[in-house]
Amino acid sequence: MVKINFIKLISFPCALASFYFVGAQNKNDSITTKEIKEVLIKLQRKKQFSDHANYTFDKEALEKSRHSKDLLSTLPELQLDPISNTIVSIIGGKTLFLINGIEASDNQIKSIVPTNVVRVEYFDIPPARYSQRAETVVNIITRNPEVGYSYGADVTSALTTGFVIGSANAGYTKGKNDFGLEYSINLRDYDNRIVDKVYDYHLHNSHYRSEEQQKDHFGYTYHNMGLRYANVDAGKYAFQAKFNMVLNSSFNKGLGTSLFTKDASETSHNTIHNSNSNYSNPSVDL
């Protein structure tokens, strides 16, 4: 019989700072927002159906929102996860986001000008085609300007350690055609991470225990770049082609000590841990 306990403790206090900007222009209107410290959206209407709810928003709520994620975060079933900066369901599980019935990324949601949102459909009983992929489905129905563009970027960074979450997006619409660019980065770089590990088990009537403490330089960088084209005729057809490239690299360089015990005997060791990895993952979604 073997019993192994593994405990990993990581501590890296840090202070965070965020920056966000968004801009948009269409044929009849333009919006430029440099900084909004607080957005309160209270005015929404809900219509309940057997398998989903429809949410609509009044003019004041749409004009106060920086982007469509602000609207989604006001739905009682959804909330903003401050760690990942993404919208998640309060009941847990995977949430699939659509724009006019087409699967969409977080950056695509942010690229929608709020005043172009007609309604949001929240499915707590997912349609059959999505039932095996997600517990909830959110479909954002929009009106597209005949000619218009939008762009935006946001960055959250730590002041005292290597921590960056950032994204940028740009979109251009002309008639039924929509073009978009997306980029996101997730970076970590910790100089003095402390990791404690404990292995404790019994094997062949002997008691073994290993206690390790390591101080390392640890980090990773995740890039996600996307290029998309969509041709949509509302109520008739929708086509989207999207190319994505994911680049990921990580490293770990550490020194530490280990105390190994077998029954009543103990031995001490020094440890060295060096590792790194790199991979890329291109994909095309039609």
Rank of each mutant, 00 (worst) to 15 (best):
I7K: 12
S11M: 12
C14K: 14
Y20I: 09
G23Y: 04
Q25T: 05
E38R: 11
L40C: 10
L40P: 04
I41Y: 03
K47Y: 11
A53L: 05
L62N: 06
S68M: 13
L71C: 08
L72K: 00
T74Y: 07
N85H: 15
G92A: 10
G92L: 06
K94M: 06
D106E: 13
D106F: 01
I109S: 02
I109F: 08
P114R: 03
N116S: 07
V117K: 04
V117D: 02
D124H: 14
P127M: 02
S131E: 15
A134G: 05
N139H: 10
E146Q: 05
A153W: 01
D154A: 03
V155F: 06
S157C: 09
L159W: 06
G175H: 07
S184R: 03
N186R: 12
L187I: 09
V198M: 08
H207D: 00
S210I: 08
Q214W: 00
K215M: 09
H223C: 04
Y229C: 01
A230Y: 01
N231I: 12
V232A: 00
A234H: 01
K236Q: 06
K236P: 00
Y237H: 08
F239K: 08
A241E: 05
F243H: 09
M245Q: 08
M245C: 06
N248R: 06
N252H: 15
K253S: 06
G256D: 03
G256Q: 08
I272W: 05
S275A: 15
